[in-house]
């Protein structure tokens, strides 16, 4: 989503993005020409008249579970966004009985918060797991 028109989106897809991936962009490229939607989400920059790099994870009930906002020159980490979606999906499927500690990714240890776990996380989870192993 950007303040560009859907016509410009087509040009960008046809002349550059599709050449990067060998096919059309698989998701809809939305147009927010007056910044109305960006303003609702709080990421529209009045000074330059564009949206900043806001990224929102919205769950199946329409609830915002997370967001990240960057200034224009630094790109996002798509893998991190996907990791977060997977973590939120795991928590949702567990009906909130599970929690994913720092650095969690599929296959890593998941915690099940309970009165017994209070003060004992250090016994069951290692700080090493917060980092990507080489």
């Amino acid at each position: 989503m950007s303040v560009d028109s859907h016509f410009v989106h087509k040009m960008w897809n046809d002349h550059e993005l599709s050449k990067m991936i060998g096919k059309d962009i698989p998701f809809p490229m939305l147009s927010d020409q007056d910044g109305y939607i960006g303003k609702m989400y709080g990421i529209y920059d009045e000074d330059s008249g564009v949206e900043t790099r806001g990224r929102f994870i919205i769950d199946p009930d329409g609830i915002i579970q997370g967001f990240e906002v960057l200034t224009p020159p630094v790109g996002r980490n798509v893998s991190e966004s996907i990791r977060q979606v997977k973590a939120f999906q795991l928590v949702r499927e567990s009906k909130g009985t599970k929690a994913t500690p720092s650095g969690w990714k599929p296959g890593k240890k998941v915690l099940e918060p309970s009165p017994d776990l209070v003060g004992r996380v250090w016994e069951v989870w290692s700080v090493k797991e917060a980092f990507d192993q080489e």
């Binding site: 989503m1 950007s2 028109s5 859907h6 016509f7 989106h9 087509k10 897809n13 059309d24 962009i25 698989p26 998701f27 809809p28 490229m29 939305l30 147009s31 927010d32 960006g38 989400y41 990421i43 330059s48 564009v50 949206e51 900043t52 790099r53 806001g54 990224r55 929102f56 994870i57 919205i58 769950d59 199946p60 009930d61 329409g62 224009p72 996002r76 966004s81 979606v85 939120f88 999906q89």
Partner: peptide, 27 residues
């Protein structure tokens, strides 16, 4: 309004109820 796989379409966020959505804004 949106461009999606060669078509111009209207996208309503509510059409995505029941699915996970990654909504990305960019400059």
């Amino acid at each position: 309004p949106a461009f999606h796989k060669g078509q111009f379409v209207n996208v309503n966020l509510e059409d995505y109820k029941g699915k996970w959505v990654l909504l990305c804004f960019y400059p």
